[in-house]
């Protein structure tokens, strides 16, 4: 592979006007910040983060639903990042209820097998993660196990961003691990330059270079800069399992209105595992905290440092918004690596 230095130099040569690209993946943001990549980019080239952190885009109403399930004395199992996201009445980790951090959904089922109590897995994540939950439900977990289904698909959110035009984007860097599973066929109809990129700084530089060249040559297609893990069809077995267990539905994302077909809900034959139905939980729309701008950060129209709370009222130790909580949240990443504009 060509080294990062050569790619960075090629980029400097190519960039002749302002370009803004969006990536939709927390792991991309972490890699960009950790490697200081923005400091070697030409000034006119901007890469912004979109709604690519599953914890960040989970709206507060769903966090509140998880808290309500904890109140009902269910054992709550979920990923480490999610337990710190503030809901209306505190975060899962601080409400004094039985909350367990697990590696994945299969570990939550193991907990259910060893207890008579109800165990609810708070099931967040994109196409990368949803098939792991589908595979687990297909193994017929015990009756005292259920999930709060908070899964979402990436392409409908991209479609929304494109139709709205607020972020003025020249193209997208597609999320590598989502595409490992889902492939990139579904992105081919978007009339905008797109490149699937891996997660090393060199991968990202290469992705940016390919994006700039697409724009300059007037092309709008999906190119794959991460062929060592991604193919056009993704993992059809995983996708088939996901579609067998889940069906698309309309859901709200944090920072976005309801996006048609962007969520997943359990199909009828799996509804015994639906915690929302089992415990009659309603997911409500919650208005955001006054000064927090996580919504605008997630839409790619503000940087974390544009927020009045950043680094003062809102820090990784005492987060106000979800983007300061998650390891994949733009605010936390910028705070950790002292990223400046």
């Amino acid at each position: 592979m060509t080294g990062g230095k050569e790619i960075a130099q090629a980029l400097k040569k190519e960039v002749d006007r302002d370009y803004t690209f969006m990536h939709i993946c927390g792991t991309h943001e972490a890699s960009i910040a950790r490697s200081g990549l923005r400091s070697v980019l030409p000034e006119q080239l901007k890469i912004v983060m979109g709604p690519g952190c599953p914890v960040c885009i989970t709206p507060q109403g769903e966090i509140d639903a998880a808290l309500e399930l904890a109140e009902k004395d269910c054992i709550i199992a979920t990923y480490g990042d999610l337990v710190r996201v503030p809901g209306t009445k505190g975060a899962l980790e601080s409400v004094g209820k039985d909350v367990k951090i697990v590696q994945g959904v299969h570990k939550a089922v193991e907990i259910a097998k060893k207890t008579d109590r109800e165990v609810v897995f708070i099931s967040v994540g994109f196409e990368t993660t949803a098939p792991t939950v589908a595979a687990t439900l297909l193994t017929q977990p015990p009756e005292n196990f259920s999930i709060l289904c908070c899964h979402r698909f990436v392409p409908p959110a991209m479609e929304f961003l494109l139709s709205q035009g607020e972020a003025k984007l020249d193209g997208f860097m597609l999320p590598g691990h989502v595409c490992v599973v889902a492939g990139y066929k579904e992105y081919e109809h978007f009339p905008v330059p797109q490149v699937v990129a891996g997660f090393e700084p060199d991968d990202i530089l290469l992705g940016l270079l390919m994006l700039v060249r697409q724009v300059k040559e007037g092309r709008a297609e999906v190119e794959n800069a991460y062929p060592r893990a991604v193919c056009r069809d993704g993992n059809p077995k995983a996708m088939a399992m996901m579609h067998r267990v889940f069906e698309p539905c309309d859901v709200e994302w944090r920072g976005f209105p309801v996006i048609p077909g962007s969520g997943l809900r359990l199909r009828k034959e799996f509804e015994q595992y639906d915690a929302q139905k089992k415990f009659a939980i309603e997911i409500r729309h919650v208005e955001k905290h006054g000064a927090c701008i996580c919504d605008r950060v997630l839409r790619g129209i503000a940087d974390p440092t544009d927020c009045k709370l950043f680094g003062t009222a809102c820090t990784p130790r005492k987060p106000v918004g979800p983007c300061m909580v998650s390891h994949e949240g733009a605010c936390k990443i910028w705070a950790l690596y002292n990223q400046k504009k």
Binding site: G104, H106, T132, K237
Partner: peptide
């Protein structure tokens, strides 16, 4: 790790995410 999502044999390599081989 769980192998539900892939068909693999001993000696092959997989990409692991949240305790599952995804590809």
């Amino acid at each position: 790790v769980r192998l539900d999502l892939v068909d693999v044999e001993v000696g092959e390599f997989v990409l692991v995410h949240v305790g599952f081989a995804i590809q």
